[in-house]
Design a protein around this nucleic acid. Sequence first.
DNA 1: CGTTATAAATCGTTTGTAACGATTAATAAA
DNA 2: TTTATTAATCGTTACAAACGATTTATAACG
Lengths: 197, 197
Amino acid sequence: MEFRQLKTFRVVAELTSFTRAAEQLHLAQSSVSAQIRGLEEELQVMLFDRIGRRVLLTDAGRKLYDYARRIEGITDELRSEVAGERYARGSLTIRMPETLATVYMVPVIEEFNREYPDVRLIFINCADRQLARELNAGRIDLAFLMTDELQMQDVKVVMLKSEELVLAAAPTHLLASRRSLELLDLTGQTILYPKTD
Amino acid sequence: MEFRQLKTFRVVAELTSFTRAAEQLHLAQSSVSAQIRGLEEELQVMLFDRIGRRVLLTDAGRKLYDYARRIEGITDELRSEVAGERYARGSLTIRMPETLATVYMVPVIEEFNREYPDVRLIFINCADRQLARELNAGRIDLAFLMTDELQMQDVKVVMLKSEELVLAAAPTHLLASRRSLELLDLTGQTILYPKTD
DNA sequence: CGTTATAAATCGTTTGTAACGATTAATAAA
DNA sequence: TTTATTAATCGTTACAAACGATTTATAACG
């Protein structure tokens, strides 16, 4: 039995749903299933009655839920009591293109604020060529950018997502009537596209 | 932070030794080091003062120790309260050579009894050729035997230990004066040696 | 009563973390 | 100084968690 499982269990119990618990915990639904199954096997007792696609606590589950709450309460206390204070507070300065921010960041910021209310987030528009220098100088902590590949010394780069590029044209445009296009068809056309810089 | 780390921390704190804690927990010393380091990193605080080869709790460590005790107490309560009772009780029937038992089993049995007081251990002398049948029939649960290799269908076999074979002779024996021996020197000699059967 | 949508379980694969053994560095004891 | 002991470190291996895809079951709907 581990804290991880206990937390997962508590969330499932509160949401009465494996799927929604998985979303909230940023896990796949199958992982939530596996964790609950692990608990049930270790304790040799069913924690949920699976009635159709509804999930509800058994007697044992209700007992465990109370314990889980209690234990999580104590560990929270422990953290603030024992931890060298600075447990996620301060500020993060993030560089990212405005378009990215508006599309992706709203729910992220909401959740981040819930989890770390004492951390201030500072966004600076666009990521530019001096990224590495800015990161190393400590002027910024993180940067998101749109590009197809990137390697930088002393900077950790992770690919997060890839997106399909879609061509949009005015209905009156010469190419608008075409069913499909090759990249070559764009030769000579004026196109507008997102750039990292 | 996981239960595993917390337990390891508690044992280290009680024995004031990484090495002895590792023994008690059946872990390598390096694993204990890693777990404590993990805790210290997560909580951003040193838990032990490493003064030379002596280890003693810091203030934060003392606080954490109290919490660890408390949390372990609660989880024990949880187990007996929630678990479907039958948490390790019953009996285990084990076949093993008497010589092995006397050499290795005494401390094992002591510890096992401490951990699982409700499990009865039944030892039967020697492991014989019908091992597989006995295991599958459920007459025995486990068997230890001395041999150099073994494969059995439907039976899980694990190599636990290998031992050096030492030749012992009477001081008056012809070979006793020799500094070293080849296996061939034993040709024609009557030798006495352990057998699995 | 079939169809669709939704939810959990299951399966095979990939990934990440823990444990290990061996070695090093440090220090206490001989 | 030498030896013994202890924790830290490093590279490897093995195990367990997470994942995505699929299956199974059932509730909701036309």
